[in-house]
């Protein structure tokens, strides 16, 4: 069942614990986002809509001020964990390299991705910071900014997935850091992130930032991707343990 053959010298108990830890932080990121972004924060489904009038946004935000504030705190905790999640994948990739290569590139992408994701939570929190003082159109801009950070950043998050897929595909047979099917899952995720860039052109309908194609599909694909890769990290740690 062990699809990843790692030389035993590089496999130690501390590493396995760290890898499992990083995997569990991936799960934690999902749970925190479900609490903060889905249940409380109104990010998914989008509480504001891209075609809302500024006054409508003010009304929606003011009605749910407390929930969104608490939600933002959960969201920023969730997004910070992308860092540990990404580092875990890079660690596992690194073990299968003689000289570090893709693992470094992954770290660059994962740290940029974490930063951009954190800014999503910043924008969301600022939207509810003092809605009574801000001009109504500024609230709309914070909402735009949050979704643009999350969805318009396709090359960044997509690039991250490609940098996970490539070392799997290019690895010698039997030396893949993750099972080969995971590489396909990564490429599939890239394809699903891609429609996110259409938020630039639409303010209503399925391709706007509150729509099915440009928002729901990339968001769901992203968290499914985290779930799959976290599951694999934990499984690799456990199989090597036994």
């Amino acid at each position: 069942m062990n699809e990843t053959a790692i030389p035993s010298s590089s496999s130690d108990a501390l590493f396995r614990k760290t890898l499992a830890f990083c995997g569990y932080t991936g799960y934690a990121a999902i749970v925190l986002f479900i609490i903060g972004g889905v249940w409380l924060g109104g990010m998914l489904p989008a509480l504001p809509h891209a075609n809302d009038l500024p006054s409508e946004i003010v009304a929606k935000v003011s009605e749910n001020l407390f929930e969104i504030r608490i939600g933002s705190i959960f969201m920023i905790a969730s997004f910070a964990l992308f860092g540990t999640f990404g580092a875990g994948m890079a660690m596992q990739t690194r073990r299968c390299e003689t000289q570090p290569g893709f693992s470094y590139v992954q770290l660059v992408f994962s740290s940029m991705g974490t930063t951009i994701a954190l800014l999503v939570a910043f924008a969301w929190a600022l939207m509810v910071f003092r809605p009574e003082t801000y001009h109504p159109s500024i609230l709309l801009m914070w909402a735009d900014f949050a979704y643009f950070l999350a969805l318009f950043s396709v090359p960044l998050f997509g690039g991250w997935c490609v940098m996970v897929a490539l070392p799997i595909f290019l690895a010698e047979e039997g030396k893949e850091p993750f099972p080969r099917w995971a590489a396909y899952v990564n490429l599939w995720a890239v394809l699903l992130f891609a429609p996110g860039q259409m938020v630039m052109f639409f303010k209503d309908g399925p391709f706007s930032w509150h729509g099915v194609v440009a928002m729901w599909i990339p968001f769901v694909a992203f968290f499914v991707w985290i779930a799959v890769m976290s599951f694999l990290m934990i499984r690799i740690a456990q199989t090597e343990d036994s």
């Binding site: 080969r180 590489a183 396909y184 899952v185 490429l187 599939w188 394809l191 099915v212 194609v213 694909a221």
Partner: peptide
């Protein structure tokens, strides 16, 4: 093919189903 390509196919079929 590889088992993985079918994970990709299934994912893409679901997305196009939405379309």
């Amino acid at each position: 093919g590889e088992a993985g390509i079918w994970a990709f196919v299934a994912g893409d079929l679901l997305v196009f189903s939405v379309f």
